[in-house]
Amino acid sequence: KITVTFNGEEKARRYYKKMQKHNLKVEIRVENNQWVVHVE
């Protein structure tokens, strides 16, 4: 499981979509004013 933190929504969403293309289970959320993407 990987957790990647971004300081911008745009970058986070781009990464999220990229990971989805690989058929990975991805989850995006905001934690402590940071955009966090969890990849299983």
Rank of each mutant, 00 (worst) to 15 (best):
K1I: 13
K1Q: 11
K1M: 13
K1W: 15
K1D: 09
I2A: 05
I2V: 08
I2Q: 06
I2M: 10
I2L: 11
I2W: 15
I2D: 03
I2Y: 14
T3K: 10
T3E: 07
T3G: 03
T3N: 04
V4M: 11
V4N: 02
V4G: 01
V4I: 12
V4P: 01
V4A: 06
V4E: 03
V4K: 10
T5S: 09
T5W: 10
T5F: 12
T5L: 09
T5D: 03
T5V: 14
T5A: 10
T5E: 05
T5H: 13
F6C: 09
F6R: 01
F6D: 01
F6M: 02
F6Y: 02
F6H: 01
F6P: 01
F6Q: 01
N7S: 13
N7G: 09
N7H: 09
N7R: 08
N7Q: 10
N7C: 12
G8M: 12
G8Q: 15
G8R: 12
G8I: 14
E9Q: 06
E9N: 03
E9R: 05
E9I: 08
E9F: 13
E9P: 07
E9A: 07
E9G: 03
E9V: 06
E9S: 04
E10V: 11
E10Y: 08
K11I: 11
K11D: 15
K11L: 13
K11T: 13
K11A: 15
K11S: 15
K11V: 12
K11N: 13
K11F: 11
K11Q: 15
A12V: 03
A12P: 02
R13S: 02
R13H: 06
R13D: 04
R13N: 06
R13L: 13
R13M: 11
R13P: 04
R14T: 07
R14Y: 08
R14S: 10
R14N: 10
R14A: 14
R14W: 11
R14C: 12
Y15V: 02
Y15Q: 02
Y15S: 02
Y16L: 11
Y16I: 07
Y16P: 03
Y16T: 03
Y16E: 07
Y16C: 15
Y16N: 01
K17D: 15
K17H: 12
K17M: 09
K18W: 15
K18H: 15
K18G: 04
K18E: 15
K18Y: 15
K18V: 10
M19H: 03
M19P: 00
M19L: 08
M19Y: 04
M19R: 01
M19S: 02
M19T: 02
M19A: 06
M19W: 05
M19N: 04
Q20H: 05
Q20G: 04
Q20W: 04
Q20S: 08
Q20I: 14
Q20D: 03
K21C: 13
K21D: 12
K21F: 11
K21E: 14
H22A: 12
H22I: 11
H22V: 07
H22F: 08
H22W: 06
H22Q: 11
N23R: 08
N23T: 04
N23M: 06
N23V: 04
L24W: 08
L24H: 11
L24K: 08
L24N: 06
L24G: 05
L24Q: 05
L24E: 03
K25V: 09
K25W: 07
K25T: 08
K25M: 08
K25S: 08
K25I: 11
K25Y: 08
K25Q: 10
V26G: 02
V26P: 04
V26A: 07
V26S: 03
V26H: 00
V26M: 03
V26R: 00
E27S: 13
E27D: 07
E27Q: 09
E27P: 00
I28V: 03
I28Y: 01
I28P: 00
I28A: 01
I28Q: 00
I28C: 07
R29I: 10
R29A: 13
R29C: 11
R29Y: 14
R29M: 11
R29E: 07
R29G: 09
R29K: 12
R29S: 11
V30N: 12
V30M: 14
V30G: 04
V30E: 13
V30C: 14
V30F: 15
V30R: 13
E31P: 01
E31K: 07
E31M: 08
E31C: 10
E31R: 05
E31I: 14
E31Q: 09
N32L: 05
N32A: 07
N32E: 08
N32Q: 06
N32T: 03
N32W: 04
N32F: 06
N32R: 05
N32S: 05
N33V: 03
N33L: 05
N33E: 09
N33H: 07
N33F: 07
Q34C: 12
Q34H: 10
Q34I: 13
Q34S: 08
Q34T: 09
Q34M: 13
Q34Y: 09
Q34P: 00
W35R: 00
W35Q: 00
W35F: 04
W35S: 00
W35T: 01
W35C: 03
W35V: 02
W35K: 00
W35D: 01
V36H: 03
V36G: 01
V36Y: 06
V36R: 03
V36D: 01
V36A: 04
V37T: 00
V37H: 00
V37S: 00
V37R: 00
V37F: 01
V37K: 00
V37I: 04
H38G: 05
H38D: 14
H38L: 15
H38R: 12
H38V: 15
V39R: 01
V39S: 02
V39P: 00
V39T: 03
V39F: 06
